[in-house]
């Protein structure tokens, strides 16, 4: 009896191990991307379409843009969907990518407690808003994770001529956009967020958009194919197929429509083929 039990356990174990192992025989494509594309749910719509059309199996690794590019620099990703333009340009100059194409945009927003303790609501310029947050010593939560949003935030502090690092009112979470928004909401702090993630999470946060529309708040996403000449294991064909897919007319239409039904407004604006 006991021996039979042992044997059946062993057999099931081997069978499951076999099924786990065989699942990898498909054509794999590693997509390294930012957390905003996953946290908004956009990829949940796009990836199944791509898999259906091409037969690739996409392994989406949603990290910050910084980490996504670091994966690309090691040849550990095939294609990147990121939003950190300055770092992306450097990535291309260093020869880690073959093509880099504009996919879509939305914008960043400065969010904070609706009571707005720093009094930035009436200010048009984001620089002025950042200066006022600093001057009033209101808590500001930074991503602090080298993501595209973090890079943008650092640029904004520079534009405002504020040395934010090490200040008591400036704290870093080191986490993704969703988690950072949760923390900022809980601590009644200000933070910089991409509009997509903010809209997707708005109902649980109880925060308000306090500064928006400034030109410096633009948020653009590019697709980058990782250079297979540098890393022979990179799936260049798959990367090309993904770039072609995400820039295709139908996909761009679904990007433009995404979120309208659920959030009342689109989260991303398609940009394929437009000049930078």
């Amino acid at each position: 009896m006991q021996r039979n039990l042992c044997r059946s356990i062993a057999l099931t174990a081997m069978a499951t191990l076999g099924s786990v192992l065989s699942a990898q025989a498909q054509k794999n494509l590693i997509l390294a991307t930012t957390t905003s594309t996953q946290d908004t749910g956009l990829l949940d719509v796009l990836i199944p379409l791509f898999e259906q059309q091409t037969g690739y199996f996409v392994k989406t690794i949603a990290v910050g843009s910084g980490q996504a590019m670091a994966m690309g620099q090691k040849g550990e990703a095939d294609v990147l969907l990121v939003h950190s333009p300055d770092a992306e340009k450097q990535f291309m100059i260093d020869g880690f990518g073959t093509t880099r194409l504009l996919v879509m945009h939305n914008d960043f927003v400065v969010v904070g407690p609706p009571a707005d303790p720093a009094g930035i609501k009436t200010l048009k310029s984001t620089s002025a808003a950042f200066q006022k947050i600093a001057a009033s010593g209101s808590l500001f939560m930074s991503r602090g994770d080298n993501s595209g949003t973090h890079a943008k935030e650092k640029t904004l502090w520079k534009l405002a001529a504020i040395a934010q690092d090490g200040q008591a009112w400036y704290q870093q979470t080191g986490l993704g956009m969703g988690q950072t928004l949760n923390i900022a909401a809980e601590k009644k702090a200000y933070t910089l967020a991409d509009r997509g993630t903010y809209l997707a999470m708005k109902k649980t946060l109880g925060m308000a958009i306090l500064n928006e529309g400034d030109r410096s708040l633009q948020n653009v996403y590019h697709v980058i194919e990782v250079n297979a000449a540098k890393f022979p294991k990179v799936n260049a064909e798959g990367a090309k197929a993904f770039a072609a897919f995400i820039l295709a007319k139908e996909t761009q239409e679904s990007i433009g429509k995404f979120g309208i039904e659920k959030f009342g407004a689109p989260l991303f604006f398609p940009d394929a083929g437009k000049p930078e």
């Binding site: 957390t35 996953q38 946290d39 969703g178 988690q179 928004l181 949760n182 997707a200 999470m201 109902k203």
Partner: peptide
């Protein structure tokens, strides 16, 4: 972890 970060508590 993911649902928490999405705010889907």
């Amino acid at each position: 972890v993911m649902e928490t970060s999405k705010g889907n508590f």
